[in-house]
């Protein structure tokens, strides 16, 4: 591998480009402010299937196939698929890709999976292990609630700090020497646990990891927030974003309007009653694949730092009183 590593940050020698993206969104996401940027919006969260899990896998299948189709290639052109999701044993993406007949890496980074998939996909290309790789992820509000929280029809109240898991699937095609925005460098996060135990305040649990990765990225690269046109965290929501700003400013990094969060961008908080914002693997994935990618192509954004964040607890660890370990991956993407 010829890439340069400074601290936690990898600078790629090879030209690794995002040559296509696809974003499939659920009904609620389709009613949000980013609706027109998605490739497809389903008007039914069951997506014509008999279970939410099957619906999620169908989202994966169609979104991944669409990314390949938009790239002008075939599934057989892919060297690897790197993907994961929130469900146990990553079954959402496993079942979605089982008929694709492409070498597969299943990864789990909770809601940061999009970042982890792109990171590992880029490293595979840099190492010369492949020239075309699909990195993708999915999440589904209903299947995630079923696994991690309460039944949907239960008459309880959601706390104001809670976030809304995004339904959808997003994928990027990474190509060596392709045409499209370039993966310039990636800062891999460490597991950070700030002792938060409240599973309905994921933004607070993940903000510490976002601070750690972003500060490490700035130290390794000698950059600051102003270097980028947009710095977008994955799914900290309003609560996590406020914590992030407080800590970044304390660390000496001035935060401006270019700092945002995919969970804030994807929903209209007031009209859609999503409390602290959106979350889930698909939150950063479809926000990038639909919205930011188009902004990069159009030239509205030239340098983007996208920082998918993940809360790495399990439904068992929470019951056993464990706090929530979190992670964040920072990916610098530049318009070519």
């Amino acid at each position: 591998m010829s890439c340069k590593k400074i601290g936690q940050t990898l600078f790629f020698e090879k030209e690794i480009n995002i040559t296509s993206t696809s974003s499939f969104a659920g009904k609620k996401e389709g009613e949000g402010p980013l609706s027109k940027y998605f490739d497809f919006v389903s008007d039914d969260d069951m997506f014509g299937e008999s279970t939410w899990e099957k619906a999620e896998s169908k989202f994966v299948k169609l979104a991944f196939e669409k990314a390949v189709e938009k790239d002008g290639s075939k599934l057989s052109d892919l060297d690897y698929i790197v993907c994961g999701d929130l469900l146990n044993q990553c079954s959402g993406t496993v079942f979605g890709t089982r008929d694709m007949n492409v070498p597969y890496f299943g990864v789990y980074g909770a809601c940061s999976t999009f970042g982890e998939s792109i990171t590992l996909g880029s490293i595979l290309i840099e190492c010369g292990c492949g020239k075309k790789i699909l990195a993708g992820t999915s999440s589904h509000f209903c299947s995630a609630e079923k696994q991690f929280r309460f039944p949907l029809a239960l008459g309880n109240q959601r706390p104001l700090s809670s976030t809304w898991t995004v339904t959808g699937s997003g994928a990027v095609i990474l190509t060596e020497n392709g045409k499209g925005p370039k993966i310039e460098c990636i800062t891999t996060g460490k597991i950070i646990d700030m002792g938060i135990t409240d599973a309905s305040n994921m933004g607070a649990a993940m903000a510490g990891a976002a601070v750690d990765t972003i500060v490490s990225h700035f130290k390794d690269t000698g950059r600051d927030l102003q270097y980028y046109d947009v710095v977008a965290t994955g799914d900290l929501g309003y609560v996590g974003r406020d914590i992030l700003i407080k800590y970044l400013e304390e660390s000496g990094y001035k935060c401006g309007e270019n700092l945002t969060d995919c969970g804030i961008e994807i929903f209209d908080r007031e009209k859609q009653d999503t409390h602290s914002g959106g979350s889930g693997c698909a939150c950063s994935a479809i926000t990038y694949c639909g919205y930011f990618h188009k902004k990069l192509l159009d030239g509205d954004i030239k340098r983007l730092l996208i920082v998918p964040t993940g809360a790495m607890m399990s439904s068992t660890s929470g019951k056993q009183g464990e706090s929530i370990p979190s992670i964040a991956y920072a990916i610098s993407i530049e318009r070519q």
């Binding site: 700030m194 938060i196 510490g208 406020d242 914590i243």
Partner: peptide
């Protein structure tokens, strides 16, 4: 990120304020 006990206590206070 400082993850010492003291830093976590401070973090928890800030989380309470901002939630």
């Amino acid at each position: 990120m400082d993850t010492s006990k003291k830093a976590k206590e401070e973090y928890s206070k800030i989380v309470d304020e901002l939630t």
